[in-house]
Design a protein around this nucleic acid. Sequence first.
DNA 1: AAAAAGTGTTGCTTTTAGGTTACATCCATG
DNA 2: CATGGATGTAACCTAAAAGCAACACTTTTT
Lengths: 116, 116
Amino acid sequence: MDIGKMSLGEYIQYLRKEKGLSMRQVAELAKISHTEVKRIEGGVRKQPSPQVLRFLASALSTPYEDLMAAAGYIDEAPTEEENSTTAARINGAEDLTEDELAQVNQYIAFIKNQRK
Amino acid sequence: MDIGKMSLGEYIQYLRKEKGLSMRQVAELAKISHTEVKRIEGGVRKQPSPQVLRFLASALSTPYEDLMAAAGYIDEAPTEEENSTTAARINGAEDLTEDELAQVNQYIAFIKNQRK
DNA sequence: AAAAAGTGTTGCTTTTAGGTTACATCCATG
DNA sequence: CATGGATGTAACCTAAAAGCAACACTTTTT
C-alpha cells in the first residue's frame, strides 16, 4: 500500500479503517458531518476547505500538511527552489527609488497583459 | 509597517500598492475577478480558496506559503530571510522571456535618463 | 424474535466563494 | 467643456461546500 499516490479520499479512508473507526465516529471527532466524510472519501467533495482538513487531521491524528498535500493545496516536498535566479537578470535596479520601482513593476505588469 | 501581524486583506493591499497596481490589474494577472480582489482586501471574503491564493501569489510575486499563512491555513512560513533587498522588490519577472526582459532593462535605463 | 443501536447512503436546504454586470467618481485627452 | 477611460464599489446570480434529516441494511441486545 504505497500511500504516495493515493487520492485524498482513499487516504482518508485508509487512515480511518486503519484505526477501525466508522465515518460517523471520525465525523464526531472532527466535528464535521458524517456525510461530509463520505463525500470526501468517495471523491464527491473535490476541494474540502483547509479548515475541514485541519479537523480531519486532528481526528485521525495525521499531519495536517499531509492532507493538504493530498488535496493538492501544497507541494509535498518543501522544494526550496526560489526565484533568486531571475532577479539577477534585471540590470541596474539597485538604486531605484520607490516611485521608480513602482513604475518598473507596473511596466512588467503591462508587458504581461500585452502578451496574448 | 510590521508585516507580521497584518490580516490577509491588509497584506494583499500592501503588496498591491507597493507595486502601484490597481485592483483590476492584479485581477487580470491573477485571472480572477476584480471584485474578488476587493472582497479579499476588505475582509469580506473570509476564506479564499488556496487556488485563488496561488494565483494571487503568482500575480503579486510573493511566496504562496506567505499568503496561506496570512489566511491562517498553515502555520507561519519558515521566514527564510526578510527579503527587503532592492533586487527582490522587482516583482513578476520570473516568467519573462528574454525579449521581455530586455524591454524591462531598457525601460529601467530610460527611467534613469529621465532623472536629471 | 423483536426492538435498539450502528453503519453507509441519498435527497433537501443553507451557506459561502466567486463571477458578471451596472453604477459613481476621478482624471486625462479631444 | 465634455467625453472617454480607468478606478473602486455595490447589487444580483450561479456553483460548490457543508449540514440536516430520513432511508435501507446489518449487528447487537434483551
